[in-house]
């Protein structure tokens, strides 16, 4: 086999593109520019950590099925862990969002990083909503009967029926988490590809 034939293989080309865009030292860097030293940078990582907690606790809730937590002390505690990791997730994500906004972190070819972030935010809201709809308790009865009017008014309610528990549960534990995780992975990889956005150039810099 000639080398050119190997070079032309899809596998080889995919590997070369991937390692070209994201060589190991960019994927897992051991240094960062000194400007990456503000407390605001903590929130991206904290969001990721909270997302992991949300998924782990959600997986434990999934083992025994959607009704288990009503009748088990341990189940109820896992539900509390799931709820509070979600609250932390949203808190850290929103601080992260506004932090990135005020850093204008889309600069220098990072628009896709920003946009995957916003879509993740919206997907997370939908995930949390379907979670409330899947609780099988008074909250889910009230929240869904209220929310149906908004969604029905847009026409989407005809296909996304918030009163259909099976449908909401499927979205909550399969479709939306999958979307959120894929989007988050893409988001974090994009950050690694592009590197952390440099500060705005100040006049000071020009003089010195």
């Amino acid at each position: 086999m000639s080398t050119t034939e190997i070079d032309r293989q899809w596998t080889t080309r995919l590997r070369q593109r991937a390692t070209g865009k994201l060589p190991p030292e960019k994927l897992l860097p051991d240094t960062q520019p000194t400007y990456v030293a503000s407390w605001i940078y903590v929130f991206g990582v904290a969001t990721l950590a909270a997302l992991i907690m949300v998924i782990v606790t959600g997986c434990i809730l999934a083992i025994r099925g959607p009704l288990w937590w009503h009748g088990s002390v341990y189940g109820h505690f896992v539900n509390s862990l799931h709820l509070w990791s979600v609250e932390i997730f949203f808190f850290t994500m929103i601080v992260h969002l506004w932090g990135k906004f005020f850093m204008a972190a889309w600069r220098g070819g990072r628009t896709l990083t920003w946009m995957t972030g916003v879509v993740t935010f919206l997907a997370s809201i939908a995930t949390a909503f379907t979670g409330y709809a899947s609780q099988t308790n008074f909250d889910s009865q009230w929240i869904t009967t209220q929310a149906k009017d908004g969604i029905n008014a847009t026409g989407a309610g005809a296909y996304f029926n918030v009163l259909n528990l099976g449908q909401m549960l499927m979205w909550h534990i399969v479709l939306l988490p999958l979307a959120a995780v894929v989007l988050t992975a893409l988001h974090v990889l994009l950050v690694r590809v592009k590197g952390v956005v440099p500060p705005f150039a100040e006049k000071v810099e020009v003089h010195s």
Partner: peptide
Amino acid sequence: AIVLVGLLTIILAIVFGSPDERA
């Protein structure tokens, strides 16, 4: 980050729990 967020989650869950009004 994972350890700290995990600890915070556990503390909040123990202190505040979560609501579950019967349907």
